[in-house]
Write a protein that binds this DNA or RNA. Structure first.
Lengths: 367, 367
DNA sequence: GCAGCATTTGCACGCGCTTGCAACAGCGTC
DNA sequence: GACGCTGTTGCAAGCGCGTGCAAATGCTGC
């Protein structure tokens, strides 16, 4: 059985010909040159040893200005680029950080991805993106993929890994960051928001606007952060002596907001204030409320959301909402990765909570 | 000067101790175990040679069922994962595909990224994400990064690389895919839409709705695809004997749509049909038209967009628009990558055009 | 029992890179 | 002039893996 051989591999063999002659004679005819230039070739051209080349491209290594100049010159001429695969192999540090995320088409997720890639690049790292929209065990699969590529760390934006997989990662020297995955696992670095606190503050805002019949519109996803918002809201309302009508439906999306509006606005006692677990839900809710039930916002109904996606600021919505501190989240995540590289022993298990500031717009009276 | 040494490297040295004894005595005290298990260890545990392990994880290699079983068992127990860095080094094929994109927070871009990552994963590849929001030469930088990681290919969703950089990539054996970057460069695979044709069809739609005073709202980005829409629209209108008022402003974003509305709706001869180069622009335009100028859509003004982002379907907009065939784009891109892997010689330079279907919603009368 | 064959296995080399070590060059000092 | 010191360079080992080749193994048929 002829062994598999990609064409790029073939190209490469042209060099092996020095050692085993009888191969490659017909092969040489097919492909003329090997695709990448190696440090070896740069070294030859510059008239120095291969290690000199290596050192030239290693910050902090000891090279004389003269050799460096010769090397850089040769590298430039040949179009040489350090092979990060090989470098990662030696250094045992690939510079790759794996981003594990589902529903990356949604506004909040994509904004976070943008911020993370940006910050990672600033820190000299590079993002690898794994889509986990498919099956449910896919976070585990994604982490395995990360391990295969020897990613220095994985940042999980959606879903939850099994504890066993988490352990596998940590044992393999992978750093793990969980964003908004409120969890008690030891080991990973956890970034969360003060969801409950924020939600609580909103009750006062609603009261001040004169609302009395509060409702909470949630999805059925049951994510810890979504549930924290719900519980925080309900608890704070109860503390004020108010009941909250809680409705949950479907995925965390626009369409669900519409359905939730249908349910909540057809109640005999129609709510006059709704806190939607997410801006996306809020947009759907507002659209249905206005166009289907002719409810005037904020006159007859006050609405708030969470995330502060771009659309919340659009003048069709003018949604009062809590802003995800996206930049701060990304900064903290990347900063932790850097810190851990420096000093391992402590600081392994860590967790922070950030605040989500309320952004006032006109979907709530007063303000 | 003490050479730089990451902690993970230190961990590794614990094995070297077998060869050079006098090192690492104090090091061993610091870190106890090396992070990753290698094929060597699996081989030892399974009682076979290292090559047997390698072959077990190489599809199509010759291994007896018995050895395979032993190897898989040992690998499972040890938590072994093939090192794709090393594999990529040998095979000269990393499995990495680089996605180069700016403004990845916008709906259209993020949807495309989602589709691409999904398809790539299905094809056994993995996406590396490079954010080029920063400087302007950053596409070149991004491509260099792709070369450093020996990505099998780069897919460019935004910006345009210099011809020199393109050549560098191709010379280095990198495949290149340009999406919606209408260009005449040889070498890269180019996926484009029939922008002009689509834009032309819209003129008829506007006429059928009884519109006579046409306008085109564009950004100042000057992207080939945006300009193609503009020119296609203007040309088709001219063929019908109609002039088009063209206005351009700012980046391709919601805010620009608002400004464009301000400009176009304050004209003495106010247009009764506007084609916005992008859905995002259209949303801004509609919002300003309605809330600022109290224009009723579609009664007094017909609006169309391009992309069919999720928000276009929201009931605040109900925007008639051209759908980017996102899934088809992703499929074609990935398919081409696969094809090229198989047979290099021909098919290097290739280009396809896909159709953008018109999605009818209520922002144009009739339909 | 042995030649002939197909299948499996181990050896050894090399992918491109980093880095410890030793050798070496240059230079000031006693 | 010998010595020590600092800064630079080449050597060679090795990161974890794939794979050609040859040796080994198992099997069939005479």
């Amino acid at each position: 059985m002829p062994p598999f051989m990609g064409h790029r591999r073939l190209a490469h063999i042209c060099k092996i010909v020095q050692f085993s002659v009888h191969r490659s004679q017909h092969i040489r005819a097919i492909v003329s040159q090997k695709p990448f230039v190696s440090a070896q070739e740069v070294a030859e051209r510059a008239g120095v040893s291969r290690s000199a080349v290596s050192r030239t491209f290693t910050p902090g290594a000891s090279v004389s200005p003269e050799t460096r100049r010769k090397v850089v010159e040769a590298a430039e001429a040949l179009g040489y680029h350090v092979n990060h695969l090989a470098r990662g192999l030696m250094r045992n540090e690939s510079g790759i950080v794996c981003l594990i995320v589902s529903e990356m088409g949604t506004p909040y997720r994509s904004t976070l991805i943008r911020a993370l890639t940006q910050q990672l690049q600033n820190a000299g790292k590079i993002a690898m993106l794994v889509n986990t929209d498919r099956s449910d065990g896919s976070v585990g699969l994604a982490l395995r993929q990360a391990i295969r590529y020897r990613a220095d760390a994985s940042i999980i934006l959606s879903g939850m890994p099994d504890k066993s997989i988490t352990q596998l990662c940590l044992k393999n020297g992978q750093r793990l960051v969980l964003i908004n995955r409120d969890d008690d696992q030891e080991g990973p670095f956890r970034i969360n928001l003060n969801d409950a606190v924020a939600a609580g503050r909103l009750v006062t805002a609603f009261l001040r606007a004169g609302c009395r019949r509060l409702a909470f519109a949630n999805s059925e996803a049951g994510t810890p952060s979504l549930m924290a918002r719900e519980h925080g809201f309900v608890a704070a309302a109860k503390a004020m002596g108010l009941e909250v009508v809680v409705e949950r439906y479907g995925p965390t999306a626009y369409e669900s907001g519409r359905v939730l509006a249908q349910r909540l606005l057809t109640l005999s006692e129609r709510p006059d204030a709704v806190f939607c677990a997410t801006d996306l839900i809020a947009c759907g809710f507002m659209d249905a409320a206005r166009h289907q039930f002719s409810v005037s916002i904020p006159d007859q109904l006050c609405v708030a959301g969470f995330d502060d996606i771009e659309q919340a600021a659009w003048s069709s919505y003018e949604l009062t909402t809590f802003a995800q501190p996206v930049e701060a989240i990304a900064r903290e995540a990347v900063r932790w990765l850097g810190r851990v590289d420096a000093q391992d022993p402590s600081a392994r298990d860590h967790s922070i909570r950030l605040d989500a500031d309320l952004v006032w717009r006109s979907s709530i009276r007063g303000g």
